[in-house]
Simulated assay, not measured.
Amino acid sequence: MYPILLAIHSLIRWLVVISLFVAIVNAFIGWFKNRQFRNKDLAIQRIAVEVAQLQMLIGIILYVISPVVRYFLTHFKEAIKLREIRFFGLEHITMMLTAVILITVGSSVSKKKTNDLEKFKTVAIWYTIAFLIIFSSIPWQFSPLTSRPYFRAFF
């Protein structure tokens, strides 16, 4: 089960990055062009939230069953000094939970705005901050923190 969930989690990260990027671009365009906030804009925003929350759910399940995290928690004094173990045991989950909370709160705050310009502005700011956190906390192949392949196999 762990390898399959890990592969799914790796695949969904692309959906998170793409949906969040689309939502951010859409929000900035709406904000700077002073567009009316339409159902399409709400749908784009909602898709980004739901994909991020799905990824978070899978990530939490992985965190609970991960052998890397198990090692981190049971050998904390030694593991905290090991870059890769610390990244997955502490840093990755902390940053990703923070980002998903920002996305969720940003979406909620924007829905309460009565002005279309404020809705776009709120989404643009909150989602951009979350995107930067997510992008910096994904274990890309080029990451100096720790690296993983761009796509994982399902076996």
Rank of each mutant, 00 (worst) to 15 (best):
P3Q: 11
I4H: 11
A7E: 02
A7M: 04
I12G: 01
W14M: 03
S19Q: 08
S19F: 11
L20M: 13
V22N: 05
F28Y: 12
I29V: 13
W31P: 00
K33W: 04
K33Q: 11
Q36Y: 10
N39F: 13
I44T: 10
Q45T: 10
A48I: 09
A48C: 10
E50L: 12
Q53W: 05
L54Q: 04
I58E: 01
I65L: 07
S66Y: 04
S66H: 05
F72I: 03
L73W: 01
T74N: 09
H75V: 00
K81R: 15
R83M: 09
F87P: 06
F87K: 06
I93L: 00
M95K: 02
M95E: 00
I101L: 14
S107I: 03
S107V: 04
S108M: 12
K111F: 08
K113L: 12
T114D: 15
T114S: 14
E118K: 13
E118P: 01
F120D: 02
K121Q: 10
I129A: 13
A130P: 10
A130T: 07
L132V: 15
I134Q: 06
S137H: 11
W140A: 04
Q141L: 11
F142K: 05
P144G: 02
L145K: 13
T146R: 03
S147V: 09
S147W: 12
P149K: 00
P149S: 01
P149G: 01
F151E: 03
A153V: 13
F155D: 15
